[in-house]
Amino acid sequence: MTEHGEFDHVSGRSTTGHEWDGIKELNTPLPRWWVITFYACIVWAIGYWIVYPAWPMLWSHTTGVLGYSSRADVAVELANLEKIRGDKMVTLGAAPLAEIEKDPGLLALARARGKTVFGDNCAPCHGSGGAGAKGYPNLNDDDWLWGGSLDQILQTIQFGARSGHAKTHESAMLAFGKEGVLKKDQIVTVANYVRSLSGLPTSPGYDATAGAKIFADNCTSCHGDNAKGNQELGAPNLTDKIWLYGSDEATLVETITNGRAGVMPAWVGRLDPPTIKALTVYVHSLGGGK
């Protein structure tokens, strides 16, 4: 009955023979099915080592006889994706910008592709829906620093603004205060004048004539005689209701004192031409496109 140890008469089972303070441990072997499963797992693991990448080596790892790699799987899936997109994106790349919005199929494709790419590349500055932020233009409105036609948007996306690219939009607003061109009180005066251009209230004691004079002497070369801005230079329209950095006096004083020169990177070379085209149409279709 007992192979080793002793027979326990109360339970009718054999014991392991080990005794602690008069208590003996019953011999309860692992269930057969469990042991078989366990050994099967070991055999499986050995097979796995041979077939799949498994052991770390000094500089690399064993690759397994199947040569499997999850990275290769991703590459295949990406290639398939490109294949699916292939023809459609070629058509999109070949179509003239103005035609895309007239073709419902191409428009839907460009907007879908544009939205994805916008989320990946543009959203960090312009926001996921292109709402912008202080210093980053809202792309939904009709106010454009560098122009809101399809071609102008394409130009801006391709080469950016002050990006360092040879064809980029280049200009900078002079730091009138820092450079000593204007004194503190002159800056406050011209800031109030700028506020008055779009109908905003001015501070008490503000000298409108002086403001107009300072503006005419210093600002009109870029912002224009009527202060409506100049898209060639990226100089904003100062008579509308949209403010890139803010319309309160303190912000305007800061802007005039230190100047402004927002930067947008060039995307040519980072995104392929059909994708940039899709992005252009997407931004244009947000609502503000001219």
Binding site: G127, S128, G129, G130, A131, N138, N140, D141, D142, D143, N237, D240, K241, I242, L286, G287, G288
Partner: peptide, 18 residues
């Protein structure tokens, strides 16, 4: 309704929802 931005102010002060 567009969530971001919910509303857009245009240069002439009109309000647009997309």
């Amino acid at each position: 309704h567009d969530r971001n931005p919910v509303a857009v102010k245009l240069s002439d002060g009109s309000i647009r929802n997309a």
